[in-house]
Design a binder for these strands. Sequence first.
RNA 1: GUGGAUGUAGCUCAGUUGGUUAGAGCGCCAGGUUGUGGCCCUGGAGGCCGGGGGUUCAAGUCCCCUCAUUCACCCCA
Length: 418
Amino acid sequence: MQEQYRRPRGTQDVLPEASERLEALRRLTRGVTARYGYGEIQTPVFEQTAVFVDGVGEGTDIVQHERYTFTDAGGVSLTLRPEGTAAVARAYVEHNMATWPQPVRLYYWQPMFRRERPQAGRFRQHTQYGIELVGSEHFSADAEVIAVGVRILAEVGKAPQVLVNSMGDEVCRPRYREALVSYYTDHFEALCEDCQARLRINPLRLLDCKRDVGLKAGAPDIADYWCEACRAHFDGVTALLGAMDVRWTRDSGLVRGLDYYHRTVFEIQDPALGAQSTLIGGGRYDGLANRVGAAGRTPGVGFGAGAERLLLTLPPEYGQNRRPRVFVARVGDGQDAFLCAEQIRRAGLAADVDVMGRSLKAQMKDAARRAAWVVIAGGREWAEGRAPVRDLASGSTEEVALGDLVGYLAERVGADRP
RNA sequence: GUGGAUGUAGCUCAGUUGGUUAGAGCGCCAGGUUGUGGCCCUGGAGGCCGGGGGUUCAAGUCCCCUCAUUCACCCCA
């Protein structure tokens, strides 16, 4: 086959079935989030490039290699949104949300763009659902955010395991970082190529190495370097998780790649996904708002969840509640059928009608694929004020007076009406 | 960006040591039933065998390049 035009690499056409799944998930997240008091925010698909460069951090992969950046006709550098938090922080500052009653609870459901090499569960455009709890420094805010993530997964039938860690703060992180660098510098020769680079660029990520040759075990643990405040914060968060019966484990190697993270970081994974196992990832970002122009200290916690990735872990029937529809089959010229379908729709039910000019037999065949009930319009019975209504599941046909037709169908299609 | 695997009909695949007009199942359309689906039967549409180049009398089959998909690394949702 000759295909001249193809969708860009790593993007997807969301066809009706997938669309329904996505929409079902969106409804679910919206419902859960609303119960926790979060309001939706929608930010532009693109921002001034500086929002992400300053917000996410110059040294991160996201801004270094994965940006979709362009210059518009006015010479302004714009970047397609690669992640949600920096944009929300920008909006928080721009709209003076610091003057709103604190904390401010926001959630978003938006497409994100990163120029990565696609693979299972990783796309160049994906939909991310995320929440941000801005304005509270208290550990219970972290626990609430994690609870929302756990709740979402529980509602789709998962019993999630939460990985938590603390990256420390401006007091203790530098001390730890120093210890880590000195430890790995002593073992420089044993490090893989990537890790030798990490040592310079982002030493904390050394802990992430998957080709570790046993160095990790002897590496200093950040928990031993936490200052009193960070330790208390971590204990507070995990105590609340425990009290909620959330299964959590501390992962001393869990570090997130974005510069704005501070103290709590967490991930919720699903091993079914292979390499891209992180369903939800997030943490606390107390300094972020300042990076994008906030005057005072504006703490915050949040997470992002990949919608398509989450869908990959759900059974195919998720979100596929096929609603019974009514099919109006045509006998004769078709005007009766066409108008009958209109009547049914006006009553709030879903109805299909043949627009192919097919034979009755072909219409029946078609109806069997897309409907649960068939009304035959325009024939002998119709002329006498009745219509045969066939139940495709049982195969039985009943004749219904035209005046009662809509009511008859409404009663049977009932709760399944769209 | 790096490495591996895979590209034949809408889908899943077959195509023998390179050899005439490239096949199957499912799906789709129509007919068998001038007014009735699911089973069955018959017929039909639909392929420059991902693209380009090369070797050969001859290439879906061999070689090179390229593009795409996919898995892993990297990174992340």
